[in-house]
Design a protein around this nucleic acid. Structure first.
Lengths: 174, 174, 174, 174
DNA sequence: ATATAAGCGAGACGGTACGTCTCGTCTTCCA
DNA sequence: TGGAAGACGAGACGTACCGTCTCGCTTATAT
């Protein structure tokens, strides 16, 4: 089931109409809506799938991603992981943002990332508004921005820059 | 002409279809398209209007907004101005983002803001990727995020946080 | 099992989807299809149930409904019985017509009524096209027409009119 | 515009989905809905078109269809005309009945036919329930019934039978 | 002053996505 | 293992929207 959607994300690029997705997946449109509720739900599920691993590693994996390492290192590792996902799925990301206009900040997945980043930032810089900074960091994970910055010659430019920004926010190490 | 659209942005809230806009403005849909080219154009024009003053002040006004003041102060003043605009037009901002999905980073208005912020950051922190940081700063000016953060009790929460973030990026003065 | 469907015919009124019927009956949709084959089958079964008595009385009951009475009287009695059923189940009738669009004239139940009426008409008026007249008489048993004609103040208006029509068709007794 | 729908009625037979109609007519689906409101509206418009001539002839044409001739002759001529239309458009008729389940008896076109027939019947047989008889006569113009009765060898069987029925209703010429 | 040109109000149209609703089949799971 | 429950395939329907287009009117300009 998921595999079909992946095919389509590849095939369609951005013009992924649900009708087409369903047809190309060899399944009725009704099924898609029954399973995902709406266009937003579909994209969310795809992102979810692609980031579940990272989520689990963050929640309960080994350091430095998981609990146990210093906040600074955990943040670095996390941004590295999320950056990799984002760079590999910029198109999907962009489509998701476009679809989930409403309630983007209430999405459970976003809430998880935000909570994580916020906690790490707060641990290192209790003097700052970690809640906002987390939103700011995550706001840079914009599909269009990533596509804008990523060139064939430098596929990790985006992640590197995000890391640099996070480092600047945290200030000189301890 | 503009006034009509403003009325509509207020009236419609978020569900501003061009049909409705045109009808409510007492003008044919054709006229709207003749003047703005597309939905994106309309929103852009509205934002343009609301930010022209700031733009001019930044380009050729008196310090600290205009040229002449230290980069740090200019950035502070700029973010204050842009924050005020954004907080007062969060709905419009959100609609614009939704509409201008394509080519958002090629929009002249965005390019101007980005160039300005980028230059200021570069002046103060030549060691960082000012280009990216400017994108990051501007990425926080997201209509939905602003609506999410702004509460009746604290209307300038967003701007304050952005300032704090910029300060953190620039590091200790000096 | 039948009882559940009756509940639904009453409950739903006109928008009786099989999904809803099944759900409201507290039974899986599969069950409904196994027992009735299709939407048409379900409605047919309901009608069947409500008209079985009349059918048996007509086929082998005592006169004037059953064999033995003069055709004119048998027809009168039959139309009275069928009219009563139809007036009491106009909604069901309308739904059935809508569902059985295809092959309406091959339905065993319809064939029985038609054969009966046709034979009675032929007996009394061998000079007319009894086959067609029987179709015409039965065509008036239309759910929507009955609902249209039946008012709270005159619940048997439809039956009376049908009788009058039949009498006119048969011509002066004689 | 109409021509396209005619093509489709021919082409589709009975499975005329609005999507297909629109596509095959080279027009957007939105257009179809704007012009006809719904499936029912489309079919109604087609029937309207095919029967407009008869309607005008009946309302203000020369006898025996139009005013001036005796009721008996007018009814005969009218049934002949309507029968011809119905026999030539049985499929369309059936589709229309299926679509216009709701409010069939409030349709202006139906009201016109009914008023006409009812008036003619009342003129000739004031002793009968002309209102109902008119419904009964028109009820025989059922697409499926016509298809059922019409064979290649006897294309006017239906009309002939309707005439006979009407004659029987009117009784011996007075 | 009249004729003509440009521009504008109005809205129909082509095209298409979305989400809801059905029906009838097919699969799964429990008794 | 057989029947109940409901997921699934397929697709129609109606709505909303965008961007194009064609009208007819009005206003301004040129003769």
């Amino acid at each position: 089931m998921r595999a079909t959607e992946q095919l389509l994300a590849e095939g369609g690029g951005d013009h992924v109409s649900l009708d087409r997705v369903a047809a190309l997946a060899g399944v009725g449109k009704g099924t898609v809506f029954r399973r995902f509720g709406s266009r937003a739900g579909l994209l969310q599920a795809l992102l979810e799938e692609r980031s579940r691993e990272l989520r689990e590693a963050v929640a309960s994996g080994p350091p430095p991603l998981g609990p146990g390492a210093p906040a600074r290192e955990r943040l670095h590792a996390f941004l590295d992981g999320l950056g990799a996902i984002a760079e590999g799925n910029a198109v999907l990301l962009a489509a998701h943002e476009q679809a989930c206009a409403e309630d983007k900040y209430g999405d459970p997945s976003y809430l998880f990332w935000h909570g994580h980043v916020s906690a790490l930032l707060a641990a290192e810089r209790p003097d700052l508004d970690a809640d906002f900074l987390a939103h700011a960091v995550l706001a840079t994970f914009d599909g269009d921005l990533i596509r804008h910055l990523t060139t064939p010659g430098d596929p990790r430019r985006f992640t590197r820059s995000v890391q640099e920004m996070a480092a600047a926010m945290l200030g000189p190490a301890g």
